[in-house]
Design a protein around this nucleic acid. Sequence first.
DNA 1: ATATTGAATTTTGTATACAAAACACATAAC
DNA 2: GTTATGTGTTTTGTATACAAAATTCAATAT
Lengths: 230, 230
Amino acid sequence: MKNLGAEYENLDQKVYQIIKNMIEDRSLLPGHKIPQEKLAKELGISRTPLISALKFLEHEKLVQVKPRRGFFVRLFETKEMIGIFELREVLEGLAARRAAQGITDEECKTLRSIFSDYAHQKNITDISGYSRADRRFHTMITQLASREFLAAMLQTFNIISLAYQNVPSEGLIRHPNDTIKDHAAITDAICSRNPELAEDLMKTHFKRAIDILEQQIDEKSHNTTIEEVS
Amino acid sequence: MKNLGAEYENLDQKVYQIIKNMIEDRSLLPGHKIPQEKLAKELGISRTPLISALKFLEHEKLVQVKPRRGFFVRLFETKEMIGIFELREVLEGLAARRAAQGITDEECKTLRSIFSDYAHQKNITDISGYSRADRRFHTMITQLASREFLAAMLQTFNIISLAYQNVPSEGLIRHPNDTIKDHAAITDAICSRNPELAEDLMKTHFKRAIDILEQQIDEKSHNTTIEEVS
DNA sequence: ATATTGAATTTTGTATACAAAACACATAAC
DNA sequence: GTTATGTGTTTTGTATACAAAATTCAATAT
């Protein structure tokens, strides 16, 4: 028997993906209100599936509801981003562990190929390309771990990280020249089927990003203090 | 200026909580279909906010949508429960770490009090009471860590764990006589402000539950094999 | 100039309506 | 006794309707 109806997709789901992409590629900007009527008209649908999709996104904290005044694209402060990265630290740590336990030789080759273009560059300048590779890398490890919840949660966090303030660096916290070594080490650990090491390296990878974010907060509060004093 | 409208709550949210509780206390049973019209009538509302709430729950994987045939209370296999517990392992590990970093003396006293009724019992027989204490314990640690995402995710997982098959043991995987020691050790670590130890002990706490679940799977597959052979 | 008021307008939250899909069950064919 | 077929009923997915709340903005008062 064929799994009929499995390919049927609610409008909800389609709209959900569309809005998610809009947030990711910054057609909808953090902090801005989402105009229901207008957006529904643009997409050629009624408000019903739109609202449904927005409710979904609210749950992922990608949008925020203010009762009786609408949906807004969620704006994250650096402090909250640290929270997100802490979560990614432990969750992707787990994903790396799982990946190291189950990866096939084939998948290993694919994983290694992701950064091959950048591996021998002394100075990486294609930030945008590297950012995409970075994303594929983390996504693939998540998929290797293939746990429904884990994958769903991490996909959301990934988007949040990307949509976060730092537009010029394409969502990257540290410079490619720096992170490329981390990525290589993590890949090695996974491909040599060493779960503990893989988890550990992945966690360290995120801890470093967190350090940078914490530094940024310190700098900002330092600046503010000066401004306030002057 | 007062934060007006903050106390306004959509019907969605209320219904969401109601259904969540119904799943938790097993008024709605895993695998069963949720009758929209009937439930809406029972709650005295239209289908609109009901569906909205169900969409929320879908996202938390507490209910499952089968397109064109409705919402069903999600049924988890033991295998998936292991996935949930792995997640709780790393997430509550993180929560314990955070808790150990910020706990006050007052909070510490409250934390210690949770199991005080059971601390000196040689054999704990009030499973239901212990189960509630267990839940308060894990919830409190999550709240001490007070990170929006973390708290939201863990609340969901907690409910899933509770609503899981093992009705007689009230959602507990191991026996209180056994886990009470874990809880004491975790409390000590948090209250002595030792983040690394707290995280470690919490992770071990969950790893032990995972071991039991894995054993259950082995036993089941063993049984099945025998049945199939005979 | 700034603050306040208060219609006019827009937007939200929820109910209702309705076509299309799924389901149930009786009857017919093999 | 199964397996198909058809028809009436239920339920779903989406649009639409509409009262209540929020927002806008011009007119007035401070």
